[in-house]
């Protein structure tokens, strides 16, 4: 039987952590893009569109991310569409992320005073122009800190992708544990890697929040 030294375990976990980082980035960026589209629909004032987004948000916030992963990976396969673990994980995390981001951002848009909408309306700007030039630049300042804060949730959320066989750091940990029977060491290292990824982001979010308070 192969002898697994500490460094073998650690380096393998680090290699797998690349996929955690990549999946997080994909989920966060594509979730953000979907979130922006949803934000425009949600705040457009068109009732049907706003309702669609509300239901979307309720569904993805009101069910466990794990169930969403299962539905995409196993459920969709029943309809003859085979998704790879990669695709299923990326898609599920994108939908899930967008549902949270749109709600965070909606709050930021709504915190911009009503007078800003009225003044820009009076200048003959249409809805998209108002958002682009008046509302979003102001909402963005408020949104940065909670958005960075939420990225921590996305990174931790990728751990669930291990269950459908996507080999990121958690799945790698499970495999290494099966081979070495050193769960305490392996999972401590896994946790440490997550912490190393998340802690700087939490700190950054706190710092940004503080800076915003000073500026106002």
């Amino acid at each position: 039987m192969a002898d697994f030294s500490f460094w073998v375990i650690f380096s393998n976990l680090l290699l797998a952590a690349r996929w955690t980082v990549l999946l997080s980035l994909i989920a966060f960026i594509s979730g953000g893009l979907v979130g922006v589209v949803l934000l425009f629909l949600r705040t457009s004032g068109v009732k049907a569109l706003a309702w669609f987004v509300r239901i979307y948000v309720e569904v993805f916030q009101g069910t466990p991310l794990l169930m969403q992963l299962f539905l995409l990976f196993f459920g969709v396969a029943l309809f003859g569409i085979e998704l790879s673990p990669w695709a299923a994980a990326a898609l599920a995390l994108t939908l899930w992320t967008s549902a949270f981001l749109v709600e965070i951002w909606r709050g930021c848009v709504e915190s911009v005073p009503k007078g800003q909408w009225e003044a820009s309306s009076s200048l003959a700007l249409n809805y998209v122009e108002q958002m682009r030039y008046v509302i979003l630049p102001q909402a963005l300042r408020i949104a940065v800190a909670p958005t960075v804060g939420f990225s921590v949730q996305v990174i931790k959320g990728t751990a669930l992708a291990s269950i459908i066989g996507f080999v990121e750091v958690t799945k790698a940990g499970t495999m290494l544990n099966n081979a070495t029977f050193r769960p305490f060491l392996v999972y401590s290292l896994v946790a440490l890697i997550y912490f190393a990824l998340c802690f700087p982001l939490s700190m950054l979010a706190k710092k940004l929040e503080g800076r915003l308070n000073v500026a106002r």
Partner: peptide
């Protein structure tokens, strides 16, 4: 939009764009 190009408005609270 056509109407508002002809009508300007000034508000009690100024409503300037702060950014």
């Amino acid at each position: 939009k056509a109407l508002r190009r002809k009508v300007g408005m000034v508000f009690q609270q100024f409503n300037l764009f702060p950014h």
